[in-house]
Design a protein around this nucleic acid. Structure first.
Lengths: 226, 226
DNA sequence: ATTAAAATATGATAATTGTCATACTTTGAA
DNA sequence: TTCAAAGTATGACAATTATCATATTTTAAT
């Protein structure tokens, strides 16, 4: 069993507020999982009874709409926690978490987290701040979905993907999303997404290398995104 | 100065977790305000340094989009708290709060709330749960905005307005929103909103009495909304 | 009570976006 | 390696939604 104390990603989440003793206790009761690309960590409606700490890889949090399409609400990257909301609300998961890349995650049981909440105020304040940050992002995202055009949202999403997950050796977006997933992020039909990507390529603001996307003129994209 | 102990709406918010002593302390440092319909409680970008408890009246939380339209993110009713998110995040307000009806609110300084957080675990857990509830609603709302048509969202919003704020003596929605505000809730142009209301009226599912809206066939609306 | 301003309503039209069909390309399993 | 399946791409068309113009009604200030 690996030690939480030595885990680097801990620094990026609320877990950084835990003491050495608490980390040792956590290392004792945690379970590590390997999740392959495309596999779920948990699904909408499932009772999770704990939270996951993402050690490696990226996953999408999405919800199936009544029209049959999957809307991606958020991408979660290493260092972030997963499933806090439903654990705190004591409800089944509202969203599905599915790996976009191969992942390594650790599961920490609810009983443990609740103990940390009561004994470590810094920890609970940190979790609270994280959730507040999520709420702010959700509100902002909502406004964009309601008021911006698909093209504006696509441009904004491409910039977000580059700034958040970086680029590979070709200078293309490191995070490989399918066109369907990209469409699910911006809230549009897959064909519309593909069509607008072609349009942005024709304009010369992006380049399409196979299914990879490379941002050529970020300023132009920024101007489109507002 | 009125006593928080005797305030009924307290029961509906996290403030119900406070002890008698804490309530007395709060009554001492709170400030009461009367806010007229149309007036702001705080605006986007403002530093608030505390939270508001809504004693009477309803307000909208909205954000100005780059296209110049105001998107309404949430309606806040008596008993609910206002401004917790930015207080906890220690950031300026992300949304504007504007009264939709004449309101009575109490302002409680941040220093006080932070004290309650550290000394009363039930209180901080309750606030955390409320914010988690807000996050869930925001996520769900996001999916609807991204995946549903304007007509579906309008139908859903009308049902929400009836079930949340009730009806007046005519059976019409008690909460009086302008067409522009209703459009701002569902994320569409005012004209589109008006047009669809006319359409729903022609179909006989709703009735328009002046600018009031009355739901005639809720089941039909529900079927439209999904 | 009068009247200007604001809100509501509707038509005409354009722009955006979704849907269906189909072709091409890539991927992965036998 | 081969081939079926999945993913990507594009065209044609329909549906939805926004925009602009204008009329009507309501509201509120004088």
């Amino acid at each position: 069993m690996s030690k939480c104390e030595q885990c680097i990603v801990r620094q990026f989440s609320s877990l950084k507020a835990l003491s050495k003793d608490e980390l040792l206790k956590m290392a004792d009761c945690k379970t590590s999982y390997t999740i392959k690309k495309g596999e779920p960590i948990f699904e909408e409606g499932e009772i999770t009874n704990g939270i996951y700490c993402v050690k490696d890889g990226v996953c999408k949090l999405s919800k199936l709409s009544s029209n049959g399409k999957d809307q991606i609400v958020k991408l979660v990257k290493p260092g972030e926690l997963l499933g806090q909301r439903s654990m705190i609300s004591e409800e089944p998961a509202n969203l599905s978490a599915v790996a976009i890349e191969d992942m390594e995650v650790c599961f920490i049981p609810k009983t443990e987290i609740i103990q940390f909440f009561t004994q470590n105020n810094q920890f609970s304040m940190s979790v609270m701040k994280t959730i507040c940050g999520d709420l702010k992002e959700a509100d902002d995202h909502m406004v964009d979905l309601a008021q911006k055009s698909v093209k504006e949202r696509l441009a904004g999403t491409l910039i977000y993907l580059e700034e958040t997950f970086g680029t590979d050796s070709d200078g293309a977006l490191r995070l490989q999303l399918s066109r369907e997933e990209l469409a699910g992020m911006i809230g549009t039909a897959t064909e519309s997404c593909i069509r607008l990507l072609s349009e942005l390529k024709k304009s010369g603001w992006i380049d399409l290398i196979g299914k990879k996307i490379k941002i050529v003129d970020k300023n132009k994209l920024r101007r489109i995104a507002d």
